[in-house]
Design a protein around this nucleic acid. Structure first.
Lengths: 210, 210
DNA sequence: ATGGACTTTTGATCTAGATCAAGATATTGA
DNA sequence: TCAATATCTTGATCTAGATCAAAAGTCCAT
């Protein structure tokens, strides 16, 4: 079981080709004690991009080379779930809907209200944090599951369904005693201290992976 | 325990002040065997509106009197969760984002691609159906919870946390035997046939109501 | 106040699950 | 093939939970 560490404090990544906009958002973000990093293009942002760094991305829609929307779509396609706030002065329905449907957490129009933007940023960061925590939990459960033997996995399924050891034994064509041993191993490998624990973890895991 | 019945097959509710649009969508919807009901204004739709009827709503944004967006917002405010598809020929960022954030499942621009609209409608109906089923489940669990005595509720919390009866007894300052009785009553009132059942139901319930 | 309904509490008993230890079977790499 | 390892299986014993029945305390309405 490897240790999983959260690598950094949350960062607000700012991508805009207009330096004055970058500076103004930097200042805004810094004023509430959050860390900010600015990039003049999607390209330079992607070069530095590390999917493990928590926070949120605030990006201008219209930029030379790669647009904000394209950047957002690139991130989605590559499984990055960093919340994206898209800024624009020239939006239209299509792009807005496209951005929202592709996971942009919000859409803001310049000139923007500073207080609103701050709230958006803070909500985004919070969402990102909880999602990352869930991912970590899920990965741990997933790795525990991989350590189960076939028979143990079977038993787990039945246990979580609420069958008694006797019933499980009948289903599996073995004696209840054996089920108990498998069950104990499952509890141990899943690091569950109680049946309630086991059920909760496994159910959440099932739910979160379709 | 009252019986909860699903009142109808899913219906596509069409609200548009342009009769030709209504007819064309009606035809489209009918062509895949779905039931449609048309309304020439938000007003007439609301007069007939029954939150218990499943399906989806497809509404024009620009209409005299009450606009599609206002209708959508009215529905949200009144707790109606019917999926809403907003149609428009004159969208802009603000309204699109507003619609999306307020729960519109999608936004389409006239003239629309028939196949796309059909897919949207079918997805919306499916989402509505699963959401309604979850609501029913949740309500049943909620009503069972209301039947628990204070002491039973306490025990439930501890049980779901995975504490043993002995531990719960210590926490509550009573003898383990008593906990067992409360616990048995909880299982009975929650209609859980196993601990796994209980944990899964209660966890889902907790999760779905914040 | 008093009967009735509900809630909380407990004892004795029975069953199922956890824990101890370990044999049988299968799989794999030298 | 043979040893090593992993997996599957089981028995005996001990503990915790379920089930039987029921006393004591609370609350409400007549």
């Amino acid at each position: 079981m490897g240790t999983i560490s959260v690598p950094h404090d949350p960062t607000v990544f700012i991508v805009d080709d207009d330096e004055s906009v970058r500076r103004s958002i930097e200042w805004l973000v810094g004023s509430v004690g959050l860390k900010a990093e600015s990039f003049a293009s999607a390209r330079t942002f992607l070069d530095a991009f590390d999917p493990d760094r928590p926070g949120c991305l605030i990006v201008d829609m219209r930029m030379a080379d790669i647009s904000g929307l394209e950047l957002q779509e690139w991130l989605m396609e590559h499984g990055a779930t960093l919340p994206v706030i898209v800024m624009t002065a020239f939006g239209d329905v299509k792009t807005a809907v496209r951005a929202m449907k592709h996971g942009a957490i919000d859409f803001i129009e310049k000139p923007f209200n500073e207080q609103q933007v701050l709230e958006l940023i803070q909500n985004s960061i919070a969402e990102d944090a909880t999602r990352r925590q869930q991912d970590v939990d899920n990965r741990l459960v997933g790795e525990s599951l991989k350590r189960l033997t076939p028979r143990e996995r079977e038993v787990l399924e039945f246990v979580v369904k609420g069958l008694s050891n006797k019933e499980i034994a009948r289903e599996m064509g073995i004696v209840p005693k054996t089920v108990e041993v498998h069950r104990a191993r499952v509890m141990e490998k899943m690091e569950a201290r109680s049946l309630a624990d086991l059920v909760r973890r496994f159910s959440l895991f099932q739910q979160r992976k379709g």
